[in-house]
Design a protein around this nucleic acid. Sequence first.
DNA 1: ATCAACGTTTAT
DNA 2: ATAAACGTTGAT
Length: 878
Amino acid sequence: MAMSLSADDEDYDSDSEQPRPPNRPKPKMAASPASAVKLSASRGTSGARRRRTRCRKCEACLRTECGECHFCKDMKKFGGPGRMKQSCIMRQCIAPVLPHTAVCLVCGEAGKEDTVEDEEEKFNLMLMECSICNEIVHPNCLKVKDSNGLVNDELPNCWECPKCNHAGKTGKQKRGPGFKYASNLPGSLLKEPRLNRDSKEEPEPLPPVVTATATVPTLTTTSAVKRKAEREGSSKKNEEEPPKKRPPLLALDSLPRTRLEDNPLRKKRKLFDTNDEPSMLKKKKKLLKPDDQFSPKLLQQIKTENDHREEDEGQWDHEEDAIALDRMHFRRKNENDSELQDEDTEEEEPAVKEKDGGTHDKTKALASPLLRTSSAREGDLSSSNSPRAGPSSESGDGQEKSSSQLKARHQRRRHPNKGLSKELSQEMLKMEDSLSNQKLSAEKTENNAHYRRPLKNEDSLTNQNCKPIKTEETQNRRAPKLENSVANYHRQPLKTEDSSGNQNRSPVKAEPGSEADEQKPRWPLNNGSSDLGDWLRHRGREVNGTPRGYSPLSWNRSTPITPLCPRPLPRRSPPKCVQMERHVIRPPPISPPPDTLPLNEGEAHVMRREVWMKVFSHLPHRDLCVCMRVCRAWNRWCCDKRLWKHISLNRCKSITPLMLSGIIRRQPVALDLSWTNISKKQLSWLINRLPGLRVLLLSGCSWVAVSALCTSSCPLLRTLDVQWVEGLKDAQMRDLLSPPTDNRPGQLDNRSKLRNVEDLRLAGLDITDTSLCLIIRYMPLLSKLDLSYCNHVTDQSVNILTAAGTTTRDSLTDINLSVCNRVTDQSLTYFKRCGSICHIDLRYCKQVTKEGCDQFIAEMSVSVQFELIEDKLLQKIS
DNA sequence: ATCAACGTTTAT
DNA sequence: ATAAACGTTGAT
């Protein structure tokens, strides 16, 4: 009661910020009730709508309130007025569940899935909420079993019931109930304000990450999947194609108003599918997809569903990856010239092409009995990894269910996620083309049969074998748009040149194994998203070239940077806008990955999972992505968190939603986003979902993007690389390091969000002693500091770093001042005060002399032995 | 009874 | 279109 009491409000109002936010006239209460009533009424036949509640198991639910977001600040516990009554942004449940009190509209009983073992049975006994009519029933209690319900994997216990589905309402509603998250949340990370409108807003389709879901055998056929994809694709087209600018809206507008009115709930959701009218297959389109690329013998043996290959593709994430790869081939042609364009072309073109197909998608979808909507969750991350918890037991069940569902004879279709990104859809289309054209033609029944074929024939009926596939998330998440392409644009010119940059400092010195370094081999990753795949390729091409050498000496900050300058040119491609809002990342599959690899004969391959894992551990990410396409088991295995501890998108010109979700699912410990055009929104979105992130490399990114760190928390961050971040100066460092200032006095948290950083890389920044003061104050654990190419750094700076009373003085082990022309031998005397110093890099510091170094070594020899590894590069002799 | 917060309405 | 507000539901 407290919260809502008006009295409280008053008080707060009076003292706090605005007297009374104009918004809400207090008295208004009446409205709500009315609405409530209305709602229930709207709900039509069914009873009152059941509000969903948090699952309490997902990563978000398990978090504690951040205390910093809009909603937290509103809470009384954080000193706010308590008017908003919203969950902390960081705690918005990923998979809200039906309340425990929910019961079947027909029989009045609760979910009874626990009473049976069989997946299918479970499905039939669990409560399913229709996203269209909101009715909650046991599938078993429906009389209309003939028609199929369309299961929405995005939300536990959510589907489009047979009735609605039958009525042709399908597809309208993109999301089921429970999706508030996203953009409607003020301040939501998901929704960051479009930074640049410059960048185009095309909604980027979110690439679903593919997941492999091993869990369920798939019934879903490719076709099903496709359909979904197609549908989405089509919808997307609608949205995107036209005027790129207003994607979602278009769709909405296009929709018949009536519909909206019909179902109030829908209003909020975006409707994409408008066009779904069956246009029928025209689709056989273009590209064939070479899916067979990998068909080495081993693969052949693998039982995976070769037979069902189609299915697989559709279903798994990696499929996408694979697809992506394929796609790459196509692209390459175009790419050469302009990257920007190419991206556009890539995405757009396809979209265009698809139009025709789009419409018919729906048809197809309808046709095929089992469509699955989103699915993403199952797939992927293997094992235990991801922090993001699976949504509740239910979710767990859900997965299972889903599988069962899929197979369910009722053939439920999956609901296409609307959110699919264009790409995705495209990809799907391609697949379809190649794969299933033939099949498509076949009608659903056929498909069903086909798909259902159990991997193991016998059981086909039961589904265990055939678990549905789930696959990628089809959701529509939208990625944030990359903001400032423009910004990037501008900034780039400055330091340009080389791309070698990413290693920015490499020329000077190789970074002593930072964590990141260790894994280098693996970095190139791709999450398996198609995008990644592309990216990888890209990289192969471009990056292969090694960094071009430059002479550090010549570099001069003030001077126009010559080619020597380390800063690589960022890719310009204008990032497509990605809209993250509404993008809900699905939790990784709860079920453990399979331990064995089934072969065609029904036997299991002699090598067990752990052995395979050892093999996989030697593969670069790119190859892992390929492996993920092989079979379901490999898909799961290859997505194991252990294989993706370090993910690098270094210099990836455009970060797509697919990549982002792929990253989230793999929960890397280290993430390299250097020299990418990642936007603030994307970065916020990412780091808020990577609670275990230890290493974050953002060199060469824009300050706008990096500023995401000001509002997001990375409590475990140990290594932060913000070298060559354009626009990162003292003021920005302050924003980055300062603890939140708006906390109420009582709960003031003086700790910086970056307080645990031990390795800080600031090369190439125009920072002064002001920043260093902040650093010594807020980064007590700092041991490695890279200030190379910082022309404003002086002996005084070193004095500050090593001054008595600073924690840095004792914690500092590695300091890089190379190419800091204002540093002199005097700095060496300051370093004598550092108790832990082991590595001092003064290379290319014009004012540092060899004599000075020798003297340092001599004086230190009393306690510690140092040596000159290279000119002006001092290292402690261990 | 209390706390949390969902889902909608309202204001801007 | 977005942020704020709030009645009411859900959990404890």
